[in-house]
Simulated scan of single mutants.
Amino acid sequence: MRIVLFCHSLQSCWNHGNAHFLRGIARELLARGHDVRVHEPVDGWSRLNLVRDHGEEALLGWRRAYPELSSESYAGLPDLDAALDGADLVLVHEWNPPELVAAIGQKRLAGGRFVLLFHDTHHRTVSDPEAIRRFVLDGYDGVLAFGACLAERYRAAGWAKQVRVWHEAADTRLFRPLPGVEKTGDLVWIGNWGDDERSEELEAFLTEPVRALGLAATVYGVRYPETALDALEEAGIAYRGWLPNHEAPLAFARHRVTVHVPRRPYVEALPGIPTIRVFEALACGIPLVSAPWRDTEGLFPEGSFLLARDGAEMARHLRAILHDADLRAGLIATGLAAIRERHSCAHRVDELLAIHAGIAGIEKEPGLELRPCA
C-alpha cells in the first residue's frame, strides 16, 4: 500500500515533538513493506531554527538514526498530482498551511482514489479555534485526533464527518532500556519552554524540588528565556540546550528518574492527553513522576508512574524513588509493560490500517462512537 504523509517536518525535531511520532509510524509502515512518501516544506520553522542554531550538519543526525526514512522538501506548494499518484492512504498533519490542506481535499473530491485523513496532535482547537476553522476539510474522510476530548471538540463543532481517536506512542525500535549505560546524574527533564504554558509548573515541580533535594539534574530543550535559565542555574540544574530526539534514550539511561510537566491547555481543557515524552520515558525504563493531569482514558495502569499533587509531594516522590530500589523496579516494570502491551508505534499502525480498511471498504457507515470525557 502506498501511504503519503504531509507534515511540518520529519527532518527536524527542534521544538517539534510531532516529528517523534511520525518518524516512528513511518518506519513501522516501511518495516511492514508499505511504500511511504513524506512531503514537508523546505522553509518550515522547525527546520529553519535548527539550522540557524546548529548548522546544516544538525540534519545529518536524524539521517543516521533513521537510515530507512526520507522526506521530499518543497517550496510553496508541492506538485499534488505527482505527490498523490498511486496513493492508497494520505495523512495530512495539522501543522500544514490551510491552503495545502484545502488543495489536498479538493484532489479527493475530484475523484482521488485514496482515503484522506487529517491528523491533529495539538491543543489549538481550544487555545486557537480560529486557526482550526481556517482548515477546509471538505473531501476528508475523517480526522485522527490524539485524544478523546480533542475528538469530541471536532465532532461538537461539526468540523469533520468522522473522528477517530489515535493517540501518540513510543517508537520502541529507538526508545528502549539501555541497561549497560552508567548512571551519571539523578534527574533529567527533556522539554521545551512552551511560551509560558507551564512556567509556574516548572518552578513548582522541577526547579524547587531539585533545589530542595540537592539533586544532580539536567534539563534539555529550547526557547528558554533568560529568566528561566537563571532559575535553572540558581537551582543547580545543568542546562544542555537542544537534544536530538534520537539521543533521548541515552539521556534517560544516564539518569535515575525523570518528570512530566504537562502544558496548561492540556490539563485544563484537554484532559487525558499526555506529552509523547511520557510514552518515550516509560519505554526507556526510567521511573517517572508527573505533575497533575487526569488520565481520563485509562491509558496507563496504576503504578506506571507516580503522580504529585504539588511541589512538596514531587520532592517526596523523587526522594523515595532515589532511595527505594523496590519502588524503582516496580515503576519500571509496570511502565514498560504498558508500552509493550498498548502504546508502541506498532500498535498505532495496527489501528491506522484498521481505520483505513474500514473507511475504504464501507465509507457510508457512520463513524465510531467516542468515549466521553470524564
Rank of each mutant, 00 (worst) to 15 (best):
W95L: 13
Y74E: 03
V101K: 01
D85H: 11
D128R: 13
W95R: 15
G111T: 00
A103Q: 07
P97M: 11
D120I: 13
G111Y: 00
D88H: 13
V92D: 00
Y74I: 06
P98W: 02
R134C: 15
W95V: 12
F114G: 10
H93P: 04
R113E: 15
L100P: 06
R108M: 04
P129I: 00
A103H: 10
A82S: 14
F118T: 08
H119R: 14
L117Q: 05
L117N: 03
Y74F: 15
G76I: 06
D138G: 04
L89S: 06
P98E: 04
L117R: 02
R113W: 01
P78T: 05
L89G: 11
A87W: 03
D81L: 08
V115C: 10
R108H: 13
D88Y: 00
A75K: 09
A75G: 11
L117P: 08
D85Y: 01
D120P: 08
P98R: 03
H122N: 11
I132S: 07
A110M: 07
F114I: 06
L137N: 04
S127C: 07
T121I: 10
E130L: 14
G105M: 01
D128S: 15
E94C: 12
E130P: 07
G76K: 09
R113V: 05
E99S: 12
Q106A: 10
E99M: 10
G111H: 08
P98K: 03
A103M: 07
D85W: 00
H119P: 01
R133S: 11
L100W: 05
K107G: 06
A82T: 15
A82Y: 09
R124Q: 12
G112N: 09
D88Q: 13
V136S: 12
Y74M: 06
Y74C: 07
G112A: 03
I104D: 01
A102Q: 09
F118C: 09
A110N: 11
L137D: 03
G112K: 05
T121L: 07
V115L: 04
D79E: 12
A75W: 00
F114C: 11
A131T: 13
D79S: 12
F135K: 12
V92P: 08
A87D: 05
V126R: 10
H119L: 13
D81V: 13
A82H: 14
T125N: 06
G105E: 02
L137C: 10
V126S: 08
A75V: 12
V92M: 01
A103C: 10
L100V: 14
V90G: 08
V115K: 00
V92Q: 01
L137Y: 00
